[in-house]
Simulated assay, not measured.
Amino acid sequence: MNTVLSVVVLATASALAYAAAAVAQRAAALRAAGAQGTGLRRSVAWWTALLLNLLGAVLHTVALKYGSLVAVQMLGVLTLVAAPLLSSVVLRQRLTAAQWSGTALTVVGVAALLALVPSAGEGRTPDSGELVGLAVLTAVAMGVPVAAATVTRVAAVAGLLFAAAAGVAFAAASALAQTVVLRVSGTSPGPLASTVVAVVGVAFLAPVGVWLCQLAYRDGLEAPLATVTLVNPVFAVLLGVAALGDRYGTGPLTLAGGLAAAVAAGRGVFLLARAETSGAPAGSRPKVAAPGGHFWGIRLRRSAAVAVGAVDSRR
């Protein structure tokens, strides 16, 4: 199996595992909501979701050994397609036209945006200076939306801002995880000290990303999920350009195509948000666990989508 095919197979399998986990955890959340929020931890569906997320994390990490960060993150958007489709089949619930349109625009926009940059080929590890640049860029990109989310009084806006910060955290964690994998496997040797720093970074960013997801999903699910999925690969590209020395085309056609793709993805997020806020009556949507709840693991944001399409289940 060649390198490109390995990346496609592993990253796609990871995305499907995350999607199946989202469906399983959604079922657990709906059952818990029917029992006044009790029994979620003991639910078979919840434990199934946890195992599927761990499987997804392992597949994602292995994929990072064979391909670039951008390639793996790009294929991760398949979760956004697979999760609602699996949910509609398993839970026998129809998706609304707005959900179909929003999901399609988001996925097409992200895929088109990342298709404009080189995303194949093997990954590489950053040197010490690049690690510092990665840390600074990540801190700024996370801090700005979190600060804005804490001062806004609009819950939906705060959710999207926390989701954006979570996407940044997961992208940076994936970049550092790739560094660890390539260093440990001997594919791209480097100083032990920087490898340890990368491990510490993953251990910090992964739970922070999960916590930010918990904040993002308190008042909605579809739009924050789309936002995390959008920001994650886009920030991976930004890390490559600003911190890892990657260079991409900047011709007029490339820039115009990138702008069109970004507009399409943004429109998709807007449609998902509007479908959410115009859905079920207040109080009819089951809530996600508060910050500090019992979700964990690398890129576990997709499991936090415990009710993708939950509004439909209440109509």
Results as ranks from 00 to 15, higher is better:
residue 3 T to E: 15
residue 4 V to L: 15
residue 6 S to N: 14
residue 9 V to E: 06
residue 10 L to S: 06
residue 12 T to C: 10
residue 13 A to W: 02
residue 13 A to P: 04
residue 16 L to M: 12
residue 19 A to V: 08
residue 23 V to A: 09
residue 24 A to H: 14
residue 24 A to K: 13
residue 25 Q to A: 06
residue 26 R to A: 14
residue 33 A to C: 01
residue 34 G to H: 08
residue 35 A to P: 04
residue 37 G to D: 15
residue 39 G to D: 09
residue 40 L to D: 04
residue 41 R to Q: 13
residue 41 R to N: 12
residue 44 V to S: 14
residue 45 A to H: 14
residue 45 A to T: 03
residue 51 L to Y: 10
residue 61 T to Y: 03
residue 63 A to K: 12
residue 65 K to A: 13
residue 67 G to T: 07
residue 74 M to C: 08
residue 74 M to E: 08
residue 77 V to H: 08
residue 80 L to N: 01
residue 86 L to N: 00
residue 91 L to K: 01
residue 92 R to E: 12
residue 95 L to Y: 04
residue 107 V to S: 03
residue 108 V to I: 15
residue 111 A to L: 15
residue 112 A to S: 15
residue 113 L to V: 03
residue 114 L to F: 04
residue 116 L to C: 06
residue 119 S to P: 02
residue 121 G to M: 11
residue 126 P to D: 02
residue 126 P to C: 07
residue 128 S to D: 13
residue 130 E to N: 07
residue 135 A to N: 05
residue 138 T to L: 08
residue 138 T to H: 06
residue 138 T to C: 04
residue 139 A to S: 14
residue 140 V to C: 08
residue 143 G to F: 05
residue 143 G to E: 01
residue 143 G to T: 05
residue 147 A to E: 11
residue 147 A to P: 05
residue 148 A to R: 14
residue 149 A to T: 03
residue 155 A to P: 03
residue 156 A to L: 12
residue 158 A to W: 09
residue 159 G to N: 06
residue 161 L to W: 09
residue 163 A to F: 03
residue 167 G to R: 08
residue 167 G to C: 00
residue 170 F to Y: 13
residue 170 F to N: 07
residue 173 A to I: 07
residue 175 A to F: 02
residue 176 L to I: 02
residue 179 T to H: 15
residue 180 V to L: 09
residue 181 V to D: 12
residue 182 L to Q: 12
residue 182 L to R: 15
residue 186 G to F: 10
residue 191 P to D: 10
residue 194 S to V: 04
residue 202 V to P: 00
residue 203 A to I: 00
residue 212 L to D: 07
residue 215 L to M: 13
residue 215 L to Y: 15
residue 220 G to E: 11
residue 221 L to H: 05
residue 221 L to D: 00
residue 223 A to L: 05
residue 223 A to F: 05
residue 224 P to K: 10
residue 227 T to D: 05
residue 229 T to I: 04
residue 233 P to Y: 00
residue 234 V to P: 02
residue 235 F to R: 02
residue 235 F to S: 03
residue 237 V to T: 13
residue 238 L to P: 04
residue 242 A to Q: 10
residue 242 A to Y: 13
residue 243 A to G: 00
residue 249 G to P: 05
residue 251 G to Q: 08
residue 254 T to N: 10
residue 254 T to S: 10
residue 257 G to E: 06
residue 258 G to S: 03
residue 259 L to Y: 01
residue 264 A to M: 15
residue 264 A to L: 15
residue 264 A to R: 00
residue 266 G to Y: 07
residue 267 R to S: 13
residue 269 V to D: 04
residue 272 L to E: 01
residue 278 S to V: 01
residue 281 P to E: 13
residue 281 P to F: 09
residue 284 S to Y: 12
residue 286 P to G: 10
residue 287 K to H: 12
residue 290 A to Y: 05
residue 294 H to R: 14
residue 296 W to E: 12
residue 302 R to E: 15
residue 306 V to R: 12
residue 306 V to F: 15
residue 307 A to W: 13
